[in-house]
Structures are given as structure tokens and as C-alpha cells.
Amino acid sequence: MSDAAYGPAMNRVDTQPEAVPEPDATATSSAPPATRRARAIRTAGLWLAPVMIGLLALLFFFYYRGLQADGNSTVISALDWGDKLLPQTIRIVYIAFWSTVIVILVAVPLGIVLTRPAVRRISPFVLAVANSGQALPAYGLLVIFLGIMGQGRFTVIVALSLYALLPVLRNTMVGLDGVDRSVIEAGRGMGMTKMQALTRIELPLAVPIVIAGVRTALTLNIGMATLAFLIGGGGLGITIQTGLKLNQDPILIVGAWLVALVALSFDWLGAVAERVLKPRGL
């Protein structure tokens, strides 16, 4: 938890309950120098990342320019910026954004409910399902929803929301479970109501892990939004697909590169959000 900052979102997929360090009350006032240096590197990474992404974007720009200069008409028309690439990029972001919003609105409250004492018993079961849900093929889920809801971006958004629900649900539950019981006990002992203990202690302390889950969800959603084209949801997947069909590596590369740029940018935004939203003092 202490090494949030520019750690990639997927870091937290494996947040096993036992890997969550207990917030230690008998404080460790100064971290060993090695840890501090590593933390400094991660902080530097947070600032360095946009530079690296910018560099990749610049390389992309030159590559793209080069392709247009080559004058292969198939390639040029498949990679038209205003007609193809820009709307496709926007579509991916649109899909990923809304499915992530839905995921948060559903998974966080659900995670809160599932960690309340009354239903706590079933939480290991839910976590086990959430765990094996990782093997669910995104591709298959999309096609199944195609059968249920028909073509289009809304089908994609619903399928994605379901798919990315698990990491956020899981992290919300693990995060809330990981809050030091003695801190809650102290709060309740001072006369906080259950609601106050939840909103003032448990949720703020679980925030870093919940956000890590949201970052994972965002990553999954962008990845799956790339597949949206399979069921008529559009997006940059179309360009990649075109490249594959026409056996044109440049089209393939441009599509994939752009997807990677979008994914990296959003992961960075997630890292920044994680840093900003993490309560001070942790």
C-alpha cells in the first residue's frame, strides 16, 4: 500500500488479503533509506511517465507522417485521422469511461454491503468467485451479450461493467477487511455510530486499495473496449482488424500503437488519481 504512486494498476490484481499490511499503530517513523529511495524512484516515475508517453506519441507521429509520405492509398485511407482514428479513439475512451463509472457505482456499494457483519459469512465465497472470474474470456463475454442485447456500444458497456466489476468488488472487500480492527474499535468506543465508523474510518482507510481496484478495472475496460469492434461497438480494434485482414503491418502497428498510448495515458491518470486521493498520513 505504501508503494502506491506510479505502480501500474495491475499491481493490485494480486492484492491477497495477507499481502495487505496492517496500518501499524506503533509507528515506523522513518523508513529505511533503501525503501525511501525506491519511493523516490516511483515518485519520479509518476513525473517521468508523461514524458515517456509523450515521446512514444512523438515517435508515433513521425511514423504516421512517414506512412502518408509513402503514399500507399490503402494504408492512407484506412488510417485517415479525422474519419477513422480520432472517432475510434474517442469511442474507446467513451466505452471505457462509462463502464468504469458504472463499475464504481455498483461494485463499491456492493463491496460495502458484503463486508457488513450480517452478510460477512458469504464474503469468502464471493471473493473466490471474483478470483476465478479472472479466467473469464472477455471475448466470449462480449459475444454472449451480443446474443442478449444485440449490437452496439451499449452492449459493450454492459458487458464490460460486468467483467470489470470483480476487481473493484474484490478490492473494496479486501480493503475494508484490511482496516485495522483496533482503529474501528477505538472509533466505536468513542461513540461513533456504525455509519460514522464506516464513512469516517473504514472507507477513507480502504480508499487506496479501492482505487487500485478501479485502476485495474479501467485497464481491463480499455483492453476490452479494443475488442468492441467484434460486436459492432467500433473503436480502434477496427483498425487493428483491418491491418490483419489486409495483411498490412503499418495499419496494424498504427492501431495497436494508438491503443497502447491511450492505455498508458489512462493508467497514468489512474496513478495520479491514486496519489491525490490517498488520505494523507497513510
Binding site: 525506491a38 485497464t219 495497436a256 491503443v259
Partner: peptide
Amino acid sequence: RPVARAVVLALSGIVLTIPSLALFALFIP
């Protein structure tokens, strides 16, 4: 090795954020 450790872990994590179809496609050439 704190420095190598932070860098390698960050890089291996960044790979995971790249959508699979894109990464697959990038290796085709």
C-alpha cells in the same frame, strides 16, 4: 536492489496495461 526493483516492477506492470489485442498485433510484424 531498490532501484532495479522499482524500475523492473513498474515496467512489468506497464506491460499489463497495454490491451491484449494491441500487444498481440504489435508482435505480428
